[in-house]
Design a protein around this nucleic acid. Structure first.
Lengths: 349, 349
DNA sequence: GTGCAGATAGTGAACGTTCACTTTTCGACC
DNA sequence: GGTCGAAAAGTGAACGTTCACTATCTGCAC
């Protein structure tokens, strides 16, 4: 009542009650073996009686290991990459680590600062960042600090793989659409701070150019549906664009909505491709063509790489798996012969 | 090179370099004041020179405060409640805490175990759980353990508020639809492990009964689009249902898709209401009527309550704000006079 | 100069665990 | 019965901070 701060029992008290030394209890806790059955029994009884639970902070301090890995991501992201995070968490657990997600408000600078804090504070053994951390690599060698892996950056370094992972899909999409007769493209991109958005944008421009097609612009988006919606409404009524590649599924959904509002049929007048293959958009009408990304694979690979780094092992080669697949649904189809669209309908006169 | 485990500098080494005592450095770090400018200068220089960063684990051990709060949620959730988490994180930061998300694989039992671990291990000062933790309240008084708040449970305790927060919206929806002539309802619910799903289900049955309407079933769902899709396809062709209340927006999207596939117009033959008012479904066609939930408010309230508990203060009364709003869009409309639907079209013969 | 109070700085212990040793126990074998 | 060696258990220090005191320095009034 009055004395409300009941101290939790320590290993020493357990030892006293079990009539052994604190070290014996420690051995029991660490499953080190070499204890007589009778001793084990006494220790267990004492732990049970006192309701003892080891103080993990104290343990971490002594061992300099926390068993914790942090995933860092911007707080303002519209939807957390659930699948990637789930797979990463699983990979972490399998390796005996606890994964936690830390969100950071603010821009790249705050993110980098927070990452540096985490890395150097000894609270976690590794940091996995889902967005770039400008300036962090400038100071690579803080003594015995935690490891750090930036998801997108990795792809960028290994350009071959990076391109294959994300960029090549843009090529595949464009080639597919070109095969359907599309010549005039639009890209509603994601924020430049995301490596994946940068990669897709770059490859988009490259492939459109290479195939002799026409890009009618790259619109800066923010992963939101609104971005796609606004991008389409901003097109001139006479725009020859017949195919839109959106940065993700929400943006693509916005594109579809705006097109329908303008009286442009999807896919009759406008083919739309999203990215991520969210469950929801498979049930939209029209169902959305999208890139099924192996987010689980990405999460697993990134986490395994981080864990290898933490343990000082050689980073494992990313598993060669079919990373991405273009899922063709109702929102893509052959281009109209003349690319003609009906005059603006909804909204305007 | 060979000696690759470079020890990080400690407070003592900083003190030695600055020619002060370790306690003076500690005072500087804690911003305790009472230091001469000259001393501050020397300490700062030493910290800079050594690249010193305080070891937060050691600090936590001594102060018995970690400044960390954990949010616990099931790993298999389809989409993380981004908005709630974001707001909770903001509230935590404002109070000087760091919030982290911990996902737990497995069922209620594993979740409860993990929560107990977190609470008693001294690693965090508080735990916020988004799903129920069966059996945890059985053992309320672990000595000086961390605080724990379960989001939904709170609403359930304060039944008045709980009902108002989530349940009353079900009433409002049904009343609105009844006003449009709907008499035959279906509810595609969420998992029973979620307090909010339980509350909505209970109120749904209650209100349908009270208004003398007919419920044609409560289908167990799992928050997924597929659940809604299957529920509608499972209806007999002659089903008189004209209004569906879905547990969330993805489920509602699945409902709409299946209805359209069966040749039932939305909203001509079937009105559909979702829950959460996700940005994406506002851009679907038809755009989805949905309940705009003040997820930010929920997150803030829950986190503030947790922080109050941690600090031993009186839990703040939940802010009386307009928690929920029914957003009427294209997926709801007047009931067909006779409730007649066209015979099954797509899919079957 | 002396005394005194407030400002500033220092000292040693403590937080709860594990590490690196040392000591004791115990059974088997000569 | 003594010796040896492995198995089992114990001892004290250390991890890097902060806490609770104590000591020293200042400036000012007398």
């Amino acid at each position: 009542m009055s004395e409300d701060a009941v101290r939790r029992p320590t290993i020493v008290e357990v030892a006293r009650l079990a009539q052994v030394s604190h070290q014996t209890v420690s051995r029991y806790l660490r499953h080190n073996g070499g204890l007589k059955p009778e001793t084990v029994r006494r220790v267990e009884a004492a732990i049970e009686e006192l309701g003892y639970r080891p103080n993990l902070v104290a343990r971490s301090m002594r061992t300099r290991r926390t068993g914790r890995l942090a995933v860092l991501l911007p707080a303002n992201v519209a939807a957390l990459p659930t699948r990637l995070l789930g797979a990463a968490a699983t990979a972490a657990h399998e390796a005996g680590f606890l994964m936690e997600i830390v969100t950071v408000e603010g821009g790249p600078q705050e993110r980098t600062d927070r990452a540096r804090d985490l890395i150097t504070s000894g609270q976690v053994e590794g940091v996995l960042s889902l967005s770039s951390l400008p300036g962090l690599s400038d100071r690579p060698s803080t003594p015995s600090s935690a490891a750090c892996v930036v998801v997108g950056e990795y792809d960028e370094e290994l350009r071959g793989i990076g391109e294959l992972a994300d960029g090549s899909m843009v090529g595949e999409i464009i080639e597919h659409l070109a095969g359907l007769g599309h010549r005039d493209f639009l890209h509603v991109a994601g924020p430049e701070t995301w490596a994946s958005a940068r990669a897709r944008r770059a490859v988009y421009l490259e492939v459109v150019d290479r195939l002799g097609l026409t890009s009618h612009g790259v619109v800066d988006g923010d992963w939101s549906a609104r971005a796609g919606y606004d991008a389409i409404h901003a097109l001139p009524a006479t725009s020859p664009v017949t195919a839109v590649i959106a940065a993700n599924d929400p943006t693509a959904t916005g594109v579809v909505r705006a097109a329908l509002e303008r009286g442009w049929g999807v896919p009759e007048h406008l083919s739309v491709v999203g990215w991520d293959d969210a469950e929801l958009v498979q049930y939209a009408t029209p169902s959305l063509s999208s890139v099924a990304v192996d987010r689980e694979g990405q999460g697993t690979d990134a986490m395994r790489r981080l864990i290898a780094l933490v343990r000082g092992e050689e980073p494992p080669a990313p598993v060669a798996r079919p990373l991405n697949r273009l899922m063709l649904r109702e929102s893509t189809g052959p281009a109209q012969p003349g690319g003609v669209k009906p005059p603006g309908a909804a909204g305007g006169t």
